[in-house]
Amino acid sequence: MAASGHRMFVGQSLTLGISAIYDDGEPAADASVQVFLNGALYSQNQTDSTGFFRMALPGTGAGDWMFVISGDGHDEVIQFSIKES
């Protein structure tokens, strides 16, 4: 590998994708997605027509995350934590 006169910097970005389907296999299209960070409401969104939701987490993504997906009288919750390194 040849040396050069400049440096390289590498950043990170975390993107989360959630796929929501009902037990009959139908996508949970346009379902409500509430996003909580460290217990506080961070954002409110919707799944797309295929039941998919995607978002980029801010910064390093550190914190306690909770996603509440609601549609047609059903609620599902996903929780996880990302520790600051």
Rank of each mutant, 00 (worst) to 15 (best):
T15D: 01
A56G: 08
A29L: 11
M1H: 08
I78R: 06
L14E: 04
H6F: 07
G61K: 06
T50K: 09
T15G: 08
F80W: 14
H74F: 12
F53D: 05
Q46N: 10
R54L: 08
S70R: 13
S81C: 09
F9L: 13
N45I: 03
F53K: 03
P58K: 04
D24C: 03
Q12K: 10
D64P: 00
I78S: 04
V10Q: 05
K83I: 01
A29T: 08
T60M: 15
I82W: 05
F67C: 00
G11K: 09
V68Y: 06
S81Q: 15
I82K: 14
H6T: 07
Q34S: 14
G25K: 06
F9A: 10
G59M: 04
E76I: 15
L57T: 04
D48S: 12
M8I: 11
E84H: 04
T15V: 10
D30I: 01
D30C: 02
A40S: 14
D30R: 10
E84N: 05
N38V: 13
G59N: 14
N38P: 13
T60W: 12
S70F: 08
I69F: 10
A62C: 05
L37N: 14
A3M: 10
P58N: 05
Y42M: 09
D75E: 05
A20S: 15
V33S: 03
M1I: 03
A62W: 09
L41G: 08
G63R: 15
F67P: 01
S13E: 10
L57D: 12
D75G: 00
D30F: 05
N38I: 09
